[in-house]
Every structure is written in C-alpha cells, then in structure tokens.
C-alpha cells in the first residue's frame, strides 16, 4: 500500500509531497510517469511543478500521458487522487475534475500566502477541518484562475463540490482577497467522487512543523485513512 506521487519532467513539488506524507506516517513513493502506477497503489498525488514546461497550456501535455489513464481508472475504482497546483491543472485538463485553471488575472506569477475558507468539511480532504474554518496555505502559480461556465459552476456549488474559496482574514470572500481572479473565488474542487480533488494552494508546503504552519496536514491526512 503506497501513495504514488507521480513525477513528470518538470515536476518540482514531488519530493516535498513525499516528505510531507512521510511526516504524517503515510507510505509514499515517487513514481516516474513512464513506469506506470505500482500494483499496490493506495492513493495518487499529481504534484506541483511545470510539467512539460507548461507547453500549450499548464498541465495539457501531462494530462494526455498514459499514466493519467491509469490514474483515471484508479480514481474510478475509488482510489483517492489529489492534484496540487500543476497537478490541479493536470486534473482539470484530463477531466478528472471540472473546469480549467488559466492565466491569473494579474498575468503574473504569484507566490504568496493566502487565506482559504473551508466550504465543505464533509470530504476526505477536509474532514479534519470545520466548515467555515479559515486556513493559511501558500500559492505559487501563474495559471491558477479557475474558469468554468456559469451553469456548470451553479451545478458544482449546488452539489457542494467546492472545497475551498479564497477569502480575507475575516472569512469574507471578496474580490480583493481573490489572488488570481478565480470565478467565485474557487481555490479547489472535487471530481465526480469526493475521493478526487484538486486545489491550487500547496498543502504540502504547510505540513512539516519545522517550516511553520501546519494547516496543510488536514488535506494530506486523507491518505492516512
């Protein structure tokens, strides 16, 4: 039983993710995408980075690589799958999750701490939090603006599939607190099953206590259950 952290050429949060999972007692290993998922895969992380140099669109190339078909099969079988940052872009590009992450409203790469409000605490990724709880994660992306057509966003919200929204320190969802222009300030969403999730902020960067905040542990603990 091992969580596969899938490495593509250009992934750069892969080792951080393995360390963060190991800190939580989760058995995790790096899996080069050409090698396919190990037989004993119990979970999958699509980590952050710049797979394939963000050619065409961030995540577009990795989303069409053969291992993503295996990830899709695993997800359909109920295996937990988490896409972080570039992994979130890959998740949306491969239709594991709805919508798309595209160029920030600022047209700039942004690396900063953001406050997130937990929108649905009844998922494996958020059940260590309370609904409405505020957490602080870092973002580091140039293409993190969540886009989706209005009807589909209405559906997602009606189905309670928004995990996190960007908000201010009081928990108010405002345009000033929206770092990248994401529609309805969406920072993370669920796939069709609640065992599949993507988010642009980095939980693995706020998991190790010697770095500081540990809010990200709540998300990654989904793999220890």
């Amino acid at each position: 039983m091992t969580v596969a952290v899938v490495q593509f050429g250009g992934s750069n949060c892969d080792r951080d993710t393995v360390r963060a999972l190991a800190h939580l007692g989760v058995d995790a290993e790096l899996v080069w995408h050409e090698d396919g998922l190990p037989d004993d895969t119990s979970g999958v992380v699509l980590p952050g980075g710049f797979s394939y140099g963000d050619y065409l669109r961030a995540g577009a190339m990795a989303a069409r690589s053969p291992i993503v078909d295996e990830v899709r099969d695993a997800a359909d079988a109920g295996t937990p799958v988490l896409g972080i940052c570039n992994g979130a872009q890959i998740g949306c590009e491969s239709s594991l999750t709805p919508g798309a992450f595209t160029t920030n409203e600022s047209a700039r790469f942004q690396c900063e701490r953001v406050t997130l409000r937990v929108e649905n605490a009844d998922t494996p990724w958020t059940d260590h939090f309370e609904e409405g709880e505020l957490v602080e994660f870092p973002i580091a992306h140039g293409e993190g603006r969540y886009e989706i057509d209005d009807d589909r966003l209405d559906e997602l919200e009606a189905e309670d599939r928004v995990l996190f929204r960007y908000c201010d320190e009081d928990g108010e969802v405002t345009s000033e607190a929206n770092p990248n222009g994401s529609k309805h300030s969406v920072a993370g969403v669920l796939g069709e099953r609640d065992s599949v999730a993507v988010l642009m902020p980095h939980p693995e960067r706020v998991t190790l206590p010697d770095i500081g905040h540990t809010d990200g542990q709540g998300v990654l603990r989904a793999f220890s259950e």
Partner: peptide, 9 residues
C-alpha cells in the same frame, strides 16, 4: 477537441 483546445475555455 482532444488537445489543441480546452473546450472549457
């Protein structure tokens, strides 16, 4: 459909 465009956007 399959690669060059992302039908969502």
């Amino acid at each position: 459909e399959r690669l060059l465009a992302n039908p969502t956007i």
